[in-house]
Design a binder for these strands. Structure first.
Lengths: 210, 210
DNA sequence: TAGGTTGCTGACCGTTCGGTCATTAACCGC
DNA sequence: GCGGTTAATGACCGAACGGTCAGCAACCTA
């Protein structure tokens, strides 16, 4: 790969991020067990031994990939919630769009698929992900729903189950794009899908009077 | 396991199904690469060598698991569609409930998670699954939507994207139950989730006049 | 440019696992 | 029972892969 052609370079600062990006891409594509450390190293432009200078081993890489990935995006969504004024539905639209630009159309969109596939093999990592991504994300959307119900904009629904139904289409969109979409003809245009999703949501949540 | 205690038995007829069930359970739990053939054999009450009397190898087992699993359920849904009379929303409710009883609450509910995780490692199998499960399933729900629009019961929406949004919560329900739900406190009661889903769908699809 | 520090390398090791096959023993017809 | 057929076994093999480490070379400082 970078074999004899490129000369060795010493770039201690950049290696960890490059390794994490390579690891994320390959874990998402092939799964944890089917990904070889040597492939990760090669993709990061480095040899296998170097990987061990920065990470304790394969499992440590996996943990870092999951734990670093989506936390910044969640902080953004929380900030958006805190700063929003206007209708609750506009808030939901803004949240969905911010999520799409920060996660959906970036390489981080692979993390949900990866976590789904590996949760039962890494219960501790799954637990971290649940507490720090799933719970926080649910809380943001639950707050938006409650705001809409309080304003009389949405009808009264049990918030817990409603949040789960609400976020499912967003998750399936990214999961799909990292799995079957790679083998079959192009399916959805993501923007059209999201518009349809928001449109159906508007009707599904609207209070009867409106 | 069945070691020295149980005597050998010759049960040529039953072995393939027992092996397929064991393989499905373990593939769903651990993923394809992390599942050992010996574990599958042991769970099926058989030795590793026996497995090779019935399947050519690990990949053949995987193919069989995917290809046998959901086809009968799809035929059922198609029959339901063909035989239904009444409102389109009742048809959708009936489809969702039949799907839940034939897939959602059985071991076959693991297949979507498995296929999502492994699609990119087995493009041919993914293609089979797409053609024979995804497409057929989409077609059934698309027909239900079109019927509702023709009756003036649903508003006019672009059917393709609408189907994708429509089925996403059903898929996420089963995917969730086979991944993160195993590591975290119990989340949804499936029946309540499905009721909420149908309720939101009713509003999301309803024609404005109604 | 000489010497020292350290980021980087890749050959090597041990284990694990998919796959094979000679052997064993359950069943059946006579 | 007895022999023949074949389902079932598990010890074995080779390849692949995670992980190690002794040596190398890029960079720095004087």
């Amino acid at each position: 790969m970078s074999a004899a052609l490129l000369p060795r370079k010493r770039r201690k600062e950049d290696r960890p991020n490059e390794l994490l990006e390579a690891a994320l891409d390959l874990f998402v594509e092939k799964g944890f067990a089917a990904t070889r450390l040597e492939d990760i190293a090669t993709r990061a432009g480095v040899s296998k031994g170097t990987l061990y200078l920065y990470f304790a081993g394969k499992e440590a890489l996996f943990k870092a990939v999951i734990q670093d990935g989506l936390i910044p995006a969640l902080a953004e969504l929380e900030a958006l919630l805190a700063g929003h004024e206007g209708s609750a539905f506009d808030l939901i639209r803004a949240l969905v769009e911010r999520w799409w630009s920060m996660v959906g159309e970036t390489r981080y969109s692979g993390i949900p698929k990866l976590m789904i596939a590996e949760a039962r093999n890494f219960p501790e990592v799954a637990h971290f992900y649940y507490e720090n991504v799933v719970r926080r994300g649910r809380k943001v959307f639950a707050a938006a729903l409650e705001r809409g119900m309080a304003r009389g904009e949405f009808r009264a629904l049990e918030v817990g189950a409603c949040v789960d139904v609400l976020i499912a289409p967003m998750l399936m969109l990214v999961v799909w794009r990292h799995s079957l979409a790679h083998c079959c003809l192009a399916e959805q245009e993501p923007r059209a899908y999201l518009e349809m999703y928001l449109e159906m949501l508007r009707g599904g949540l609207a209070a009867p009077g409106l």
